[in-house]
Each structure stands twice: as structure tokens, then as C-alpha cells.
């Protein structure tokens, strides 16, 4: 039997490893991305794709009602776009608008690790499957691509919060937190991984959180 890491795709092959997956200790983590044991899924169940069902036509809601937080992400992304095209002045202007919306973004009532994890869990159980279904129905490969990394990165972030809730400060004492600046994957360790387990960029694309 094989078990697949739902974050990075690492395959744990019981036959090759000689240890049944179930016998691995609870604190065993993925050797590639350090995802916990509970994020591994048996190989068979992975291939299960939701069947395409006819979609009810849905109207687009008013885009003028985008939240300040979403507007901040739109403008910081446009700043990146301008920078890629070597348009420094335009990048600076987009960054100024992004900073304005970041200042005005609303964090709601609670900012506890539990509240953040609840949001991420909801994205994983509803938001991402919904987008997957809609992207498949529309034959939209770009939208399908965006889910692949986002979902894995979100799964990892959620599991790190869960671990922090259990272990507290001891979990992060004396070690570093690394962020992949391309896909947003978070890694805990003394050194960054050789390549990003999610988007496969080299280690120098990781930044250490100070």
C-alpha cells in the first residue's frame, strides 16, 4: 500500500520502507516537506475526482464591493506585474495603493490561531473544492492551476497552526520559520529545503522570517 503526502506528493511505499504506515509514530513527518502524518492519504482515494454535474448559472456579484484586503492583494500583484516589466515608477505607484488598502484592511473580531485555522479549514473544505468544480466546468486551466499550489500551501499553514495549538512555543523555539516567496509554502527547520516541496523553486527563493 502507498500513502501520498497531500502537500508535496511524496510517496510513502510500505513495501519499500518495510514499516506499515499505521505503525509510524504520531510525530513522524513527511521527509520532503515536514507535513504531519495525518496529511497523508492512501493512494486509491486520491484519484477520486468529483463528477461533473450541470451547473446552475450564477450571476457575477458586484466587483466594486471588493474588500480592502482583496484590493490590497490586487494592487500588490499589479506592482509585481509592473516590476516584471521593468516599469519601476508604475510598480511604486501600485505599491502605494496596495499599502493604503493594507492599512485599511479589516481583521474582524478574533485574531487567535484558532480563528485563523477555522478560516483556512473552511477554504479547504468548501472554497477550494468549489473553485475546482467551477474551473473544471468552464474548462479554465488557469484557474485550475491556481488551486494546485494554493490548496497545498493552505493545508500546510493550517497544520502548522494545529501543531502550534498543541505544542505551544516549544514547537518553534530554537528553530527558524521559512517562507517560499513564490508560492507561500511555510517550512519549519534550521535551514530551508533544497527545493520548495510545493512549487519546486530553489532554496534561495525562501526567506527567513525574523
Amino acid at each position: 500500500m502507498k500513502y501520498i503526502c497531500s502537500v508535496c506528493g511524496y510517496v510513502y511505499d510500505e513495501e519499500a520502507e518495510k514499516i506499515p504506515f499505521a505503525s509510524l509514530p504520531d510525530d513522524w513527518v513527511c521527509p520532503m516537506c515536514r507535513a504531519p502524518k495525518n496529511l497523508f492519504v492512501p493512494e486509491e482515494s486520491e484519484a477520486r475526482e468529483p463528477a461533473d454535474e450541470p451547473q446552475e448559472a450564477e450571476e457575477y456579484h458586484d466587483s466594486r464591493k471588493l474588500s480592502p484586503g482583496v484590493l490590497a492583494a490586487i494592487f500588490s500583484n499589479l506592482a509585481r506585474g509592473a516590476e516584471k516589466q521593468y516599469r519601476a515608477k508604475e510598480a511604486e505607484a501600485f505599491t502605494a495603493i496596495a499599502a493604503y488598502f493594507t492599512r485599511h484592511s479589516d481583521s474582524g473580531d478574533s485574531s487567535s490561531p484558532e480563528a485563523i485555522r477555522a478560516l483556512l479549514s473552511d477554504d479547504l473544505s468548501r472554497g477550494y473544492p468549489d473553485l475546482r468544480k467551477k474551473a473544471a466546468a468552464a474548462g479554465d486551466r488557469g484557474a485550475a492551476r491556481v488551486l494546485v499550489w494554493g490548496e497545498k500551501v493552505t493545508r500546510m499553514a493550517s497544520s502548522l497552526l494545529e501543531r502550534y495549538e498543541k505544542e505551544g512555543e516549544a514547537f518553534l523555539a530554537g528553530t527558524s520559520v521559512w517562507l517560499c516567496t513564490v508560492c507561500g509554502f511555510i517550512y519549519i527547520g534550521d535551514n530551508p529545503p533544497g527545493i520548495c516541496p510545493v512549487c519546486k523553486v530553489p532554496s534561495w527563493k525562501f526567506t527567513r522570517i525574523e
Binding site: 484586503g69 482583496v70 485563523i116 478560516l119 473553485l131 468552464a138 484557474a143
Partner: peptide, 24 residues
């Protein structure tokens, strides 16, 4: 983009930026 895809993307982006603001 179809309206359905736009809605699904914006819903997720809303949730992710709310998580961002809470984490900040």
C-alpha cells in the same frame, strides 16, 4: 473568465486576505 469562476476566486481571495489581516 466565467462569472462562476470569478465568484469562486473572489470568495477564496476574500477569505485568504481576512486570514492575512488576522495574522498581521
Amino acid at each position: 473568465k466565467t462569472d462562476e469562476v470569478k465568484n469562486a476566486i473572489e470568495k477564496l481571495a476574500y477569505s485568504r486576505t481576512l486570514a492575512e489581516a488576522k495574522a498581521r
